[in-house]
Computed example of a mutant assay.
Amino acid sequence: MAVLEIVVIAFWAMLPAYVPNNAAVLAGGGRPIDGGRTWGDRRVLGDGKTWRGTAVGILAGVALAAILTVLAPGVGDALGFAVPEFTPLAAVGLAGGAMLGDILASFLKRRTGRQRGAMFPGVDQLDFVVVSLLLTALLAFEWFRTWFTLEVLFVVVVITPILHVTTNMIAYKLGLKNEPW
Rank of each mutant, 00 (worst) to 15 (best):
S106F: 07
V155I: 02
P84C: 10
G113V: 13
E151Q: 15
G74K: 01
R42G: 15
A95P: 13
K109G: 08
A63E: 12
W147F: 08
G122Q: 02
W147I: 11
A137W: 12
E85W: 00
V83R: 13
E151A: 14
G122L: 12
V70E: 03
S106Y: 03
A91P: 03
P121Y: 06
F107W: 14
P121K: 08
F86N: 04
A78V: 08
L134Q: 07
I33L: 15
V83I: 01
T112A: 13
R110D: 07
L64F: 00
R42E: 10
Q125V: 09
P32T: 05
A63G: 04
K49G: 09
V44W: 14
Q125R: 09
L59H: 12
W39Y: 02
R116Y: 08
T136E: 08
G40M: 13
F107Y: 14
V152H: 07
R145Q: 14
P73F: 07
F148D: 04
V56K: 02
R43W: 02
L104K: 10
L153S: 06
L68W: 03
P88A: 00
K49L: 13
V70T: 05
L94K: 02
T54V: 07
A118S: 15
Q115P: 11
L108K: 15
W143H: 15
R52T: 06
D77P: 07
V92Y: 05
